[in-house]
Design a protein around this nucleic acid. Structure first.
Lengths: 252, 252
DNA sequence: CAGTGGTCTAGACCACATA
DNA sequence: ATGTGGTCTAGACCACTGA
């Protein structure tokens, strides 16, 4: 059962009402206050209970839909933790990716620091070499087992400090309105190095899927450069491809 | 300059107004009616011009923001996002993929035969186990060097005989109007088996990128089930990801 | 300052699911 | 038939940008 406390929402706060409500619901899902498959109260009920308009309640729900935490069925209701059916590759961070697969994401930190970009990173992120970046390196877990090593680099201008990132990099970027809307990924098969093998609990030379991602804002500015190493025996990457649409009237 | 024609929008249509407007703007961007960097008319202007409410105009714009076509700046305006690189992963066969990379495709046949599907293949291709399939297995070369082993299975109904396929499977399917328009791919890192190592001229245990592809016609019928093993040291896979599109009820 | 996007409301009607 | 989500409106106020 969802327990919504009207008094926790304040229209005086700097963060908009729909984000406050989204946070409230997200926390209750994470804390197990609502079980998966269970229905949320209807939009009108929520609207009454919290004393905000239905449109605003819908915005909160839409935020959570985009994170994959909720699913809506027209005429039926809004439910926790949608289908297990794997959507094609979408732009999701590790946490959301794991939840989509029905696994519990976790992580432990290897590095969280500020610094200057390498020439490589400066090039990729369109920075000059004296513009600071933040680095986040973690071992990423799924259901308690190590699944990947993830090293993200973000220009410092998009985040206040490294402490802004607690659980999810994308959540932190979201709060600052710097969440990428588009990404380019490069995938390659490789073998585990000694250091990787130790962190991932696999033998040296085990199959590793390397994924390199560049994330961009709508205006084309790069915000994220992440290099990851996934265990080949535990992870597969699903993507949808479409035929390139031809421009009409292009006859020789 | 954006030209919005009020009469093109109909509230009687099955598709909602905000999607109609989004389509209209998207088409004008694609057709070059608006240049990148240029500002859209303000939300209030659009609202007046088209005769729909500002809230609805905003929904249309939000759709395009999520697609990465527009970018918004608070207090300033809404702008066409800079031209994005062409989607890297498109639905292309091996030959076209290699030519896109500036390499000369080649192949030598391992198997080309008719037969009955395995239970696995029957499931994937939506066949009963007595409907015949054609199999095509090849070593695929790039600039004369072995790059991948490719095993394709196609329901016999889509091709006359195995001899229809000379160079390119997709070319043969094209002739019969059975070329897939959409594909689902699954990528996984793995290690070379002894047989694969021999065919690809790599050591046993070398990094292998396994790609499994299912290709579909526009009507959703599966036409192709291909399993490939690419050399990890020579091949990388590039894909573009976007944020999940808003998912309203749209009938097929 | 005027103009822009950002948030929010109260109410309406429609389309769909479920019993 | 009832209740759900889906769409839409007209108007309001705020926060930000830029001349």
């Amino acid at each position: 059962m969802l327990t919504i406390v009207k008094e926790q929402l304040s229209s005086l706060s700097a963060t908009p009402l729909y984000l406050q409500l989204a946070d409230m619901i997200r926390n209750q899902i994470r804390d197990g206050g609502i079980r998966t498959g269970e229905a949320l109260p209807s939009e009108r009920e929520l609207s009454d209970a919290v004393g905000i308009s239905r449109v605003t309640v819908r915005r909160a729900i839409e935020t959570l839909l985009r994170e994959g935490l909720l699913s809506r069925r027209h005429g039926s209701g809004t439910y926790i933790a949608p289908r297990i059916e794997q959507p094609a590759a979408l732009l999701a961070g590790f946490s959301a990716d794991m939840r989509n697969r029905g696994l519990m994401p976790g992580s432990h930190w290897l590095d969280r620091s500020a610094g200057l970009p390498t020439p490589d990173e400066a090039m990729t992120l369109a920075l000059s070499i004296d513009q600071p970046v933040l680095r986040f390196a973690r071992v990423r877990m799924a259901d308690g087992e190590p699944l990947a090593i993830e090293r993200a680099v973000v220009p410092a201008q998009f985040l206040g400090s490294v402490d802004d990132v607690q659980d999810s990099l994308y959540a932190a970027l979201d709060l600052r309105e710097a969440r990428p809307v588009r990404g380019l990924q490069r995938l390659q098969a490789s073998l585990a190095t000694a250091a990787e093998a130790r962190l991932l609990s696999v033998p040296v030379g085990a199959a590793i899927l390397r994924i390199e991602r560049r994330g961009f804002l709508a205006n084309g500015m790069p915000v994220e450069f992440t290099r990851s190493a996934y265990r080949g025996d535990r992870y597969d990457f699903i993507t949808e491809v479409r035929e390139l649409r031809q421009e009409p009237g292009r006859q020789p």
